[in-house]
């Protein structure tokens, strides 16, 4: 692979659901590249197609038309999906919904070893889980025998990140990882994301509705509106010289400590 092959490359990528009058284009003619070791944020209001685009990148949805390449090869044809998911992993928005209620947390963390062709021996798996838990500041022994509903939202979101520390993928798709946790745990989650990028030199696609958050974490922003990428650029360019009215809207909508926001009559 040449050094400058982008991590992802999309050409006229489209995903639509339904037929006829009920046809809904969730991702509309998206063309972009994401370089290796880059952090790109997908920003937009809810329903604008961020999660569908994330699922396309994750190979959980198939494009209706257009092309999507991972490391220069179309992802739908790169053979065994498990090999793909060893490279490309995800954390999700609602950590409660992301875990199965019927199994213990440890059992579910262990399930990710399925992706390896050769499962490591039992002891090693346990050790790697413990290390990953420590990496996200959770005490391994405290979780023994616990089920998802017995933990707080912030802890659950860190568990999803622990999974990433175990798997050490090349690419992480993070779909609104901080929108369901309380604002105080948010800083912690972001810290671990940065740690992942630094330790594993990962490519990260960060999905959020909060352009402020995106500004803080990313190298480049894609602004989405009704399935289209309406603007892309560096955080400073996009936030200081927005060219699209939708970007301006997003900027105006965040409550900042230093700027007027909603005013009373």
């Amino acid at each position: 692979m040449p050094a400058d092959t982008p991590c992802f490359e999309a050409r006229n990528l489209t995903r639509a659901f339904g037929h006829g009058a009920r046809r809904k284009v969730a991702v509309d003619d998206a063309t972009f590249t994401i370089a290796e070791r880059e952090i790109v944020s997908l920003v937009g209001q809810s329903g604008c197609g961020k999660s569908v685009l994330a699922k396309l990148l994750l190979r959980l949805e198939k494009p209706s038309s257009g092309e999507l390449l991972y490391q220069g090869r179309p992802i739908a044809e790169s053979g065994d999906p498990r090999a793909y998911w060893r490279h490309v992993q995800a954390v999700f928005q609602d950590p409660y919904a992301a875990f199965n209620q019927f199994f213990t947390i440890r059992a579910q963390l262990k399930a990710c070893f399925r992706l390896f062709d050769q499962r490591p021996p039992e002891r090693e798996m346990e050790d790697r889980i413990d290390q990953a838990l420590l990496a996200v500041n959770l005490r391994p022994r405290e979780l023994d025998g616990k089920y998802p509903f017995e933990l707080s939202g912030g802890q659950m979101q860190r568990l999803l990140l622990a999974r990433i520390f175990i798997l050490r993928p090349r690419v992480l798709i993070a779909d609104e990882p901080t929108s369901m946790v309380d604002a105080c745990s948010r800083a912690g989650i972001l810290e671990y994301l940065m740690k992942l990028k630094q330790e594993l030199s990962m490519t990260i696609v960060f999905v959020t509705h909060d352009i402020g958050l995106a500004y803080y974490v990313s190298d480049r922003l894609f602004i989405l509106h009704e399935g289209r990428i309406v603007e892309q650029g560096t955080p400073d360019d996009v936030t200081q010289r927005p060219t699209s009215p939708f970007t301006r809207q997003l900027l105006d909508d965040i409550p900042s400590v230093h700027r007027p926001w909603v005013t009373r009559a």
């Binding site: 105080c184 800083a187 810290e191 958050l213």
Partner: peptide
């Protein structure tokens, strides 16, 4: 608590939110 919040003011990127 205030220090753990982040805001998106241009030029604020250097101000790092600190988790408690």
């Amino acid at each position: 608590l205030m220090g753990s919040m982040l805001s998106a003011e241009p030029g604020q990127k250097s101000r790092k939110p600190v988790a408690i």
